[in-house]
Simulated scan of single mutants.
Amino acid sequence: MIQPFRIDIPQSDLDDLTDRLSRTRWPNEVADAGTDYGFPLARLRELAEYWRTGYDWRAQEAALNELPHFTTEIDGQNIHFVHVRSTKPDALALILTHGWPGSFLEFLDVIEPLSRDFHLVIPSLPGYGFSGPTHERGWDILRVARAWAELMRRLGHRRYGAQGGDFGSAVSLTLGAVAPEQVVGVHVNYLPTAPDPDAGIALTQEEEARLDRVRQLMAARPPYQALQATTPQTLGYALTDSPVGQLAWIAERFAQWCDPRTPVGDERMLTDISLYWLTATAASSARLHRESPRQIPSCPVPLGVAVFAHDITQSVRPLAERLYDIRHWSEFERGGHFAAMEVPELFARDVRDFFLTRLAP
């Protein structure tokens, strides 16, 4: 059963957040630390004070409630989603999937331009936000993709496209593998390409530089990823009990992964962080790093790729073409890991171009 959903955070939860922020126990910081030891103290105190005294969740809540929200239960798990229908009755449907530490909020600025041509389904990953925490093992990328296939079936979308970045990329590619008869194509804005010494492909200097970046990441696993992939429950105690801990954990990702020229504003970032805090999904969202395997099923459907200059890694096309049926490839000089929030106009245009032009009969 699909039910309408309205966001209504209890006032007691908002009062508790304000109280906790006012009682933060701050660590010291060495002189001239910069970012050498982690997220800077002065910046975090600034964000925490604005979250406590200036940020207005109720205003954000009211704006979000203008969207059509729904929930349904799939495979024993509550699933929250936004479903925006295009004014074109025969429009293609797209399912847009976020990653970590994002949320359905990533797509707010592209709903209007994309809904001119597409029906949009924007779910919250199981364990994230208003989908609520997961309660059992096994909610990996494959299980999420199967849940998405069932969600689209319930909504009556028999043929549709999929788009995603970060975990959303893996989910979208896997959705193409589990429902190839329904998925007309997949568009991603994050597609890691691992070095392959046996590929026998001559790469350009720029492509080799991109692979060097991948090798560096593989040699020294990012600390956040190592913790979430090994001890998400232990980490979850700190993040669920301390709003400043949750703030630092996510704000650091935005600071590192956004293009400095196209940063996500504090208001939008704090709304995203509030979503994690107010739904107590720090631990359950982190579990996706532990549950999901490094390898995902092969995706047989046409693929479109958007590469943004300041993403964590940039894809190498000759290596990607060995694995996927690539019909569309774009390189952008601006934008980072949160492309739909950073450069929504570029993002929306590329998605539209792939599904309406590159896949046209």
Rank of each mutant, 00 (worst) to 15 (best):
R287F: 14
L288A: 07
E291D: 13
E291L: 05
E291M: 02
E291N: 11
E291F: 10
S292C: 04
S292R: 06
S292I: 05
S292W: 12
S292N: 09
S292A: 09
S292T: 11
P293W: 12
P293N: 06
R294N: 11
Q295A: 15
Q295Y: 08
I296P: 03
I296D: 00
P297Q: 06
P297N: 01
P297L: 04
C299Y: 05
C299N: 11
P300C: 05
P300Q: 02
P300A: 07
P300E: 09
V301Y: 03
P302A: 01
L303E: 12
L303K: 06
L303Y: 03
L303I: 14
V305N: 02
A306N: 01
F308A: 06
A309R: 13
H310K: 13
H310Y: 07
D311C: 02
S315Q: 11
S315N: 03
S315C: 07
V316N: 10
V316W: 10
V316I: 14
V316K: 09
P318K: 00
L319N: 08
A320H: 02
A320L: 03
A320V: 03
E321T: 03
E321G: 04
R322T: 07
R322N: 01
L323C: 12
Y324Q: 03
Y324I: 02
D325C: 08
D325H: 10
I326V: 15
I326S: 06
R327S: 06
R327V: 08
H328Y: 14
H328I: 07
H328N: 04
H328E: 06
H328F: 15
W329A: 00
W329Q: 04
W329D: 01
S330D: 15
E331M: 11
E331G: 12
F332W: 12
F332E: 02
E333L: 13
R334I: 09
G336W: 05
A340I: 01
A340Q: 01
M341Q: 14
M341Y: 13
V343H: 06
V343Y: 11
V343R: 07
P344N: 00
P344K: 00
P344Q: 03
E345H: 09
E345L: 09
E345A: 13
L346D: 15
L346P: 04
L346W: 12
A348T: 12
A348V: 00
R349G: 08
V351C: 02
D353L: 14
